[in-house]
Write a protein that binds this DNA or RNA. Structure first.
Lengths: 120, 120
DNA sequence: TGATGTAGTTAGCAAAGGCTAACTGATAGG
DNA sequence: CCTATCAGTTAGCCTTTGCTAACTACATCA
């Protein structure tokens, strides 16, 4: 199963909400992303099928190792690309928006190149 | 009519093929992009409807002013983003691929920021 | 106990944008 | 003149990913 951009966004969102401490439900994911309950329900179902997400008896969501791997990758890209744009003088909001789109498109090679640039 | 990423790609392709001198037909666009004739046919039809493309009696395609404006914008982004990645040490092929995706997503603000960086 | 509210699911719609199959219409060769 | 080829179109399918409407299941409250 190959993850689409939308799948990556759902995983990243679960990851971000998990980091805030509280248990994550589908409804929280939907609220964060601005999506309806059925959209999240289906997406989470597919991510479970794909082995990226698990849910316990109370419906609380967690990431599998693979899900976490993807989510962390996206999150790292997101934060670093945001930082990159801000360094170049872009306002925080625009930087975040652009990072959010680019994080799904960019190759590992190019990302690493930007990362090296930002960290030097 | 709001242009999607795919519309922008078709316009950019027509622009690139036009620059090569010869008259551009739908079939050329399809060959360049790796798409089937019906896909191109529909896309070009929509771009005509939207006022981005015109065709003469022989089926040769040309861009309207608005189509050219979009195509040139994408082309500029494409070449500059490629240059940006190459400058950071990314190989030409990867740089082009990534530029091709990012050119549709990035905001004017962030693009201008990268442009300033590359040109200094 | 019955009404309300919350979370999730099911069914089905829509738009984008690929595809194949099969048609039309013009041009060119034998 | 018939046939083959080439360009384009039409019809219709498929996937992705959003949506609404309507349902279920549970919990809480008066």
């Amino acid at each position: 199963m190959h993850l689409q951009e939308s799948g990556e966004m759902y995983l990243e969102t679960i990851y971000i909400l998990s980091k805030k401490g509280k248990a994550v439900r589908s409804i929280d994911v939907g609220e964060y992303m601005g999506y309806s309950k059925p959209s999240v329900s289906r997406a989470v179902g597919l991510l479970k099928q794909g082995g990226y997400v698990m849910s316990d008896n109370d419906g609380f969501l967690s990431l599998t190792d693979e899900g976490k791997r993807v989510a962390e990758k996206m999150y790292e890209r997101h934060t670093l690309l945001t930082r990159f744009f801000v360094n170049l003088g872009v306002d925080e909001e625009t930087a975040t928006e652009d990072a959010c789109k680019i994080e799904h498109d960019i190759s590992d090679k190019s990302f690493e190149a930007i990362k090296n640039f930002v960290n030097k």
